[in-house]
Design a protein around this nucleic acid. Structure first.
Length: 295
DNA sequence: AGCTCGACCTGCACGC
DNA sequence: TGCGTGCAGGTCGAGC
């Protein structure tokens, strides 16, 4: 589930549940996600007030009263479930549909208990997720975040910026779009969707849009497409894939609006186009596109 | 330096 | 029914 729109949706849910509260306790059902949790993880969180919850690319950054920040990444299959005291569970980014009741599912690795009794359960079957702690002032130089490129929804992303990065590059355009060192937060789904929206082929060598480092006009269109796709997805509450419907409507809905992603063999949705969506593999990842619309 | 690939890990859909 | 295969939204590091 988690690309930028999904992480942003989760962030907003966590803000409602956590901001201003304190950690009363932290329970670890296993201490290794993608890599081991930092030393003293639970003790360093306990008693801390949650001052703010931000996002950098696909990372969630929780600023704590004691001067440290909790950096978290959901990997491929991570999600949070908020279990209110005496209330029902509310999933934030659900997948593999289990443990929504907070009853202690097989892959519930970390449980944050807040001072109002709310439990925030981190579930992650594949354990590609990550959690680390570092001084709040050092978040941007942390090894996980220091090489990240520009935020796609910030004003640093521009056609000129892309042109500089793409000049003389022979890699396919799509490969550059999912490179977090260039655009931080764009993943496989939304890169495909943005390229469709911009009418650009994922196979096109990136450098062909930046002759002499100057932006081709189509790059401006691509920037607009990236922002539009991400904003539309955030507005829809993100995408929820291979999932059960959530009882209280926490599931995202954007997956119903995909133009190309996971639509191999289906007709192009652009009015008047009789093309068929094709799937290819680039750098080991599936790419979906309409050969009639994208050049 | 740029690019691709395999590794990490589990679950699910599919075909036989 | 069971088993094998391939696929999945992530990132990283090795090796060409």
């Amino acid at each position: 589930m988690p690309e930028l729109p999904e992480v942003e949706t989760v962030r907003r849910g966590l803000v409602r549940a956590m901001q201003g509260r304190r950690f009363a306790a932290v329970r670890l059902n296993r201490a290794d996600l993608r890599f081991p949790l930092p030393n003293g993880f639970a003790d360093r969180l306990s008693g801390q007030r949650i001052e703010a919850i931000g996002r950098r690319a696909k990372y969630l950054v929780v600023a704590l009263s004691g001067g440290e920040s909790l950096i978290m990444h959901l990997g491929m299959s991570g999600r949070f479930t908020v279990v209110h005291q005496g209330g029902k569970a509310r999933s934030l980014g659900e997948m593999y549909g289990e443990a929504a009741g907070g009853a202690g599912g097989l892959h519930d690795h970390v449980v944050f208990v807040l001072d109002d009794g709310t439990r925030i359960v981190y579930t992650d079957p594949r354990r590609f997720g990550m959690m680390d702690l570092c001084p709040t002032g050092e978040v941007s130089s942390h090894r996980l975040t220091r090489r990240l490129g520009v935020e796609p929804l910030g004003k640093e992303l521009s056609a000129r910026r892309l042109a500089v990065a793409m000049a003389a590059r022979k890699a396919p355009l799509k490969s550059l779009l999912v490179d977090q060192r260039l655009i931080a937060g764009l993943g496989n789904i939304y890169a495909c969707e943005a390229l469709f929206r911009a009418g650009l082929s994922p196979k096109r060598p990136a450098g062909t849009l930046a002759r002499n480092g100057r932006p081709d006009p189509r790059l401006a269109k691509l920037v607009l497409a990236i922002r539009a796709v991400l904003n539309d997805a955030i507005d829809a509450g993100g995408s929820t894939l291979r999932d059960y419907a959530d009882a209280d409507g926490a599931s995202g809905a954007y997956q119903h609006r995909f133009s190309v992603y996971d639509r191999e063999g289906q007709p192009c949705r652009r009015r008047g186009c009789r093309g068929t969506i094709r799937r290819i593999v680039q750098a080991g990842r599936s790419t979906f596109y309409c050969p009639r619309c994208q050049h």
